[in-house]
């Protein structure tokens, strides 16, 4: 198990160097963010002054109010949260079940099936965009939540991930549970799931972020103004002749809030739960 060493235990030169590098990286990561916040608080004619104004001389809230009051922005946020949360919940459930089956159960053609599942990862999304559109069209699901929720569920990366995590668990734990009288589903629920919690969190975060940022498919599957996601909704605010970067930046800043909250909520889970002590080797 990797345990981070307290900084004090390394040599002083190393400590100073690592703090310096950390600070540099932090600065490089936060500058664009800061620039977005700054842009969102400027009037349009001040956006392209040179040299650029990092801190606007007076705070202009018009970008925020025009997004909030002239577009259904809050509805887009709601849509995004509903879709991303649904996809994440369903995916964590079915991918962990499929991963358990592929990792631990014995059934005919298991490896061949797994290879087929994994091979679907190699199909570029642009290749299935049009057939997928017609599938959803024929199911009469365009402009619904289902159009946005169902297709991402088929992405096999989660099955791959969960199989890896579950394969690492010692089979003696399941065997012990079998002797203890636990059903096959009970083993999945009571033994496997609690032990792969870090894996579940990784999958949940990955899925949620991917959904939160997804753009191409929602752009195709939905064209009602009230069914847009944050990403596609903001895109509708661009006219042919001009792009108001102030509006975009305000949207980006507001879109950050839920995702930062989500991350802070799950941050502890990243660090939690290890398998140390499960087995005496």
């Amino acid at each position: 198990m990797f345990r981070p060493r307290p900084a004090g235990q390394a040599g002083p030169a190393i400590t100073i160097l690592s703090y310096a590098v950390t600070a540099l990286v932090a600065l490089a990561c936060s500058l664009p963010l800061f620039y977005i916040v700054s842009t969102s608080l400027k009037e349009q004619q001040l956006l392209f002054t040179y040299p650029p104004n990092w801190i606007p001389s007076h705070l202009y809230w018009g970008n925020y109010s025009s997004l909030l009051f002239t577009t259904p922005f809050l509805r887009w946020v709601l849509n995004t949260l509903v879709v991303a949360a649904s996809v994440t919940l369903i995916k964590v459930l079915i991918d962990s079940m499929a991963g358990y089956a592929f990792a631990k159960m014995k059934f005919p053609f298991r490896n061949a099936l797994f290879v087929i599942v994994i091979m679907t990862m190699m199909i570029p999304f642009s290749a299935i965009l049009i057939p997928l559109y017609f599938t959803i069209f024929n199911l009469n699901l365009l402009n619904t939540y289902w159009a946005l929720i169902l297709p991402p569920l088929a992405n096999p990366i989660g099955i791959f991930l969960m199989r890896g995590f579950i394969e690492g668990l010692p089979s003696d734990l399941e065997n012990a549970a079998r002797l203890d009288g636990v059903s096959e589903f009970g083993i999945y629920l009571r033994i496997i799931l609690p032990l792969v919690r870090p894996g579940l969190v990784v999958l949940a975060v990955l899925t949620f972020l991917t959904q939160y940022n997804s753009f191409v498919w929602p752009l195709v599957a939905v064209n009602d103004q009230s069914m847009q996601l944050i990403t596609t909704g903001l895109a509708t605010q661009r006219s042919v002749w001009q792009v108001n970067y102030g509006i975009f930046s305000a949207g980006a800043v507001m879109a950050l809030v839920p995702i930062v909250a989500f991350f802070l909520l799950l941050q502890k889970q990243f660090v939690a739960a290890s398998l140390a002590g499960a087995l005496k080797q």
């Binding site: 010692p170 734990l173 065997n175 739960a273 398998l275 002590g277 499960a278 087995l279 005496k280 080797q281």
Partner: peptide
């Protein structure tokens, strides 16, 4: 009943 070689306690 069976005792496993490496005990197989439920770690959680």
């Amino acid at each position: 009943a069976m005792v496993f070689q490496n005990y197989a306690l439920y770690p959680h």
